[in-house]
């Protein structure tokens, strides 16, 4: 009986997820598509929970639905209105042409689905997930943390995570190359600015909590960084003039802090005669917390800069408009 109820719920979730995905892709109205996409992300987070992957659920809700949604909405702001509403361009020749393109794309993606399904089935046969999970459990004590996901991300496969942070750092360079940041929003009314004043400290606190709790329960640097970035996005939306963005030197060091500290720890343990990123078990817990703290700050900075869509005035040092850095915000 209980299995049946859960099964029905799962089927409902899958059907709703597919419907939202269709809504996000099929409509011509971009605003509608973005709203569908945000709903899709939230539902996907629920499905990750059902798959007992709360870490991924957290990351999906914070990054997939929350910040990506905010990024897409910000992009809509700069998109011409005809494009957003999906007004039809005249011309039947174009429709006939796009039918050919659609058929080609359908064939391509159909082929891709078959390929992926084959690869997945093959991987299912070869992999032995139970043994892998057992291996992690056996060695968990030496990792310095008790959350197996964090143990994999920051200890067993720390090298991968280091490279991920490096990719994020490179992404910032790309964003800065886009030119000056989008124009700031006008100061919002009492309600939104009041809410963001009230929420920002809570978001910082919860972010710190997620960072700390990552050692033994779902959480960690990526989720904490996304929440911290959420506070930055909120301040931007509420129209606070300089959004407390620090001056260039601080900003630049924040961006490199995750990767540089990670590398320093990795090389530091080599001085102690161990392999690269092979932490001594007694120190592992502290070192992981140190790396994750730096990574949280770096990830949050990267995501806020992505939302700005370019270099803020503080980056170039041409800080003309708004109050000077450090001056309190009314």
């Amino acid at each position: 009986m209980e299995t049946l109820a859960w099964g029905l719920l799962d089927l409902l979730l899958i059907a709703a997820l597919l419907a939202l995905a269709w809504g996000a892709l099929s409509g011509k109205n971009l605003q509608r598509a973005v709203v569908h996409f945000i709903g899709f992300g939230l539902l996907l987070a629920l499905i990750w929970l059902r798959l007992r992957a709360p870490d991924i659920a957290l990351a999906e809700a914070a990054i997939g639905a929350g910040l990506t949604g905010a990024l897409l909405l910000a992009a809509l702001r700069d998109t011409p209105r005809e494009v957003v509403s999906g007004a039809d361009q005249p011309g039947d020749a174009k429709a006939a042409n796009s039918f050919g393109v659609a058929a080609g794309l359908a064939l391509l993606s159909g082929g891709l689905v078959v390929l992926l399904a084959m690869a997945y089935l093959q991987a299912l046969e070869q992999a032995d997930p139970v043994r892998l999970a057992q291996q992690i459990q056996i060695h968990l004590e030496q990792t310095g943390v008790s959350n197996p996901v964090t143990a994999v991300l920051l200890n067993f496969r720390a090298y991968d995570t280091l490279l991920e942070l490096a990719v994020l750092m490179a992404a910032v360079l790309g964003i800065m190359a886009l030119g000056p940041a989008r124009a700031a929003y006008l100061a919002s009314g009492t309600m939104l600015s009041g809410l963001s004043r009230w929420l920002t400290p809570i978001l910082i606190l919860v972010s710190g909590y997620l960072l700390w709790v990552g050692a033994h329960a779902p959480g960690g640097a990526f989720q904490a960084g996304a929440l911290l970035a959420g506070a930055g996005v909120l301040l931007r939306l509420a129209g606070f003039p300089d959004q407390q963005i620090p001056p260039a030197t601080v900003l630049r060091s924040l961006i490199i802090t995750g990767v540089s500290l990670f590398l320093a720890v990795g090389l530091g343990v080599m001085l102690a005669g161990r392999g690269f990123l092979d932490y001594p078990p007694a120190w592992a817990g502290g070192l992981i917390l140190l790396i994750e703290t730096a990574a949280t700050l770096g990830i949050a900075t990267t995501l806020v800069l992505a939302f700005l869509g370019g270099a803020p005035p503080q980056w170039t040092g041409l800080h003309g408009s708004g109050p000077a850095a450090g001056e309190p915000n009314s």
Partner: peptide, 16 residues
Amino acid sequence: LLVLASSATSAHLIAQ
């Protein structure tokens, strides 16, 4: 509490 605050604010913004 968080849902209360955010839903009240977003409802206000939409209505405004």
